[in-house]
């Protein structure tokens, strides 16, 4: 059985600073982290591989070459193969263009299912898994919180999905795209001490547009159908806080605030 794990390395949102004068995000020195939802997908795959050692896992990611040490760490955790799609020509791609780039790699591949996250911390659109589903003619399901291990095979799987106040159980036939949520409780295993610096370069594959041969109108800014025109910051710090006492006057103040804002 073969699984492809589609992951994204995202800037740790906590590190992002805002330049209030220039109205831009400062992304220098921002740490990359494995998108938490995607980490859950890899963690599940590795867990499934423990039960079924014949399972083969390929991690696929798209991003700058600097994600390499992070990807290597996944290979040191028993992932079989990793592919980094990286090309300056892909920079600026929106989710539409990104999905097309990823699909052009995936359509040549054989797999039973693609496991990924539901959404990314940075963009938070949740577009790519569904759009890949469309491009590859696969069904796709988001917000998966668990997969029934016994049911997981080449044909199908029984999955639990969280949808607001309900938990839904589905059977999905493969091939399909399954998108996890980080709240699954699946955790990446440790890297063994002796593997901490293991050379895994033979399992790591870089793909650029030289291999994919996508038309330049399809990729990067040119291939994108959406673009960010403005950013608006929501600045907590500019608040004019009022301090009141927990007495009649204070309660009156809170009440009229709630009233003014339409909360009561």
């Amino acid at each position: 059985m073969k699984i492809i794990c589609l992951v994204k390395y995202v800037p740790n949102v906590e590190d992002i600073k805002y330049d209030y004068e220039e109205n831009v995000l400062i992304r220098d020195n921002v740490k990359l982290i494995l998108n938490p939802d995607d980490a859950a997908a890899v963690a599940y795959s590795l867990k499934a591989k423990e039960v079924n050692p014949d399972l083969s896992i390929e991690v696929l990611t798209m991003g700058p070459k600097s994600v390499r040490p992070f990807v290597e760490d996944l290979l040191r955790r028993n992932v079989n193969k990793a592919t980094i799609i990286s090309d300056p020509a892909f920079a600026g791609s929106d989710t539409y263009a990104t999905s097309k780039i990823l699909a052009s790699y995936l359509k040549e591949k054989e797999y039973d299912c693609i496991l990924t996250g539901s959404k990314s911390l940075d963009g938070d659109t949740a577009h790519v898994p569904a759009q890949l589903g469309e491009l590859l003619s696969l069904n796709q399901m988001s917000n998966i919180i668990s997969i029934d291990q016994d049911s997981f095979n080449e044909k199908s799987a029984i999955i639990e999905v969280e949808s607001g106040d309900k938990t839904l159980t589905y059977r999905m036939s493969f091939p399909a795209i399954l998108s996890f949520r980080k709240e699954t409780g699946y955790e990446l295993p440790y890297i063994k001490y002796e593997n901490m610096s293991l050379d895994v370069s033979d399992k790591l594959n870089f793909i650029s547009n030289e291999e994919l041969q996508l038309d330049e109108d399809m990729i990067g800014l040119k291939g994108s159908l959406t673009r960010v025109a403005n950013t608006y910051n929501k600045n907590f710090k500019e608040k004019n806080k009022i301090v009141v006492k927990n007495d009649d006057q204070g309660i009156d103040y809170v009440y009229s605030f709630l009233k003014k804002k339409g909360f009561v």
Partner: peptide
Amino acid sequence: GLVADVTKINHNGENLELVRPAFSGRIMAG
């Protein structure tokens, strides 16, 4: 193209600008 999770709609001249939260709500992107 698709804009997800829109919370506000601006008309800037000819352009329709759809505003949505990004970076876990740190900023709003038009």
